[in-house]
Computed example of a mutant assay.
Amino acid sequence: MNQAVDAVISGQMGYMMASNRFNVPSSTLERYVQKRRKNPGADKTSGKYHTVFTAEQELELVAYLKDMQKQLFGMTMKEFRRLAYQLAEKNNCSHKFSKTLEMAEEDWVRGFLTRHRDLSLRKPEATSGARAMGFNRVAVLP
C-alpha cells in the first residue's frame, strides 16, 4: 500500500495504474493518498494509540515480572497496574493512568499483554515457606 501511495504522490502513475500494479483497491488507495497529502510529515505508523513506555522499558518490565515469578513472588493484576503507574511516574513518561487510584488502566494492561504474549497475569497461588525453602539447587539436584 505504501509503495502505491508513494507512486501516486510522486506522479509516477495514476490511481488506476497503481491500483492494478500493486493489487490494492482504488478507493482505498485514494483514501490513503488523501491522508498522506493532508499530513505529509506524519509517520506511517502514527495512530490513535501510543505506548506509554519505550520498547526497552517494556522489555525491562517483562524481565522483572519473569524474575519475580522465578522467585515465587507472583503478581496480581492490581499490583501490576500499580507497578506500571509507579514506573511511568518515576521515568516521567507521558501517560493517561488514573492519578487518583495511582494505577494503570485495564485497557493498557490488555494492550501490554497483547504485545507480550509470553506473559499471563493470574492470581498467584500461595506457596508455603517450607516448600519455597525446600526448592533450591541442593535439594532438587542431588
Rank of each mutant, 00 (worst) to 15 (best):
N2V: 12
A4K: 09
A4S: 01
A4I: 09
A7L: 01
V8F: 01
I9R: 15
I9F: 15
S10A: 01
S10D: 05
G11F: 10
G11C: 01
M13R: 05
M13V: 06
Y15N: 10
M16L: 05
M17R: 15
A18Y: 08
A18V: 02
F22Q: 00
N23Q: 09
N23Y: 06
S27Q: 13
L29H: 07
L29T: 12
R31S: 11
R31D: 09
Y32R: 12
V33H: 07
R37L: 12
K38W: 05
N39R: 06
N39M: 08
G41W: 05
K44I: 10
T45N: 09
G47P: 04
T54R: 10
A55H: 11
A55N: 13
E56H: 09
Q57R: 07
E58Q: 08
E60P: 06
V62Y: 02
V62K: 07
Y64W: 14
K66T: 10
F73N: 14
F73D: 10
G74M: 03
M75L: 12
M75W: 04
M77H: 07
M77V: 09
F80H: 11
F80N: 11
R82P: 08
Y85G: 08
Y85H: 05
E89V: 15
N91T: 01
H95Q: 03
F97N: 03
K99G: 00
K99C: 03
E102Q: 14
A104C: 12
V109N: 05
R110L: 10
R110I: 11
R110E: 06
G111A: 11
G111T: 00
G111Y: 03
F112M: 04
L113A: 04
T114M: 10
L119P: 11
K123I: 11
E125C: 01
S128P: 14
A130V: 08
A130N: 02
A132E: 03
M133G: 10
G134I: 10
G134T: 02
G134Y: 09
R137F: 08
V138L: 14
V140Q: 06
P142M: 00
P142F: 08
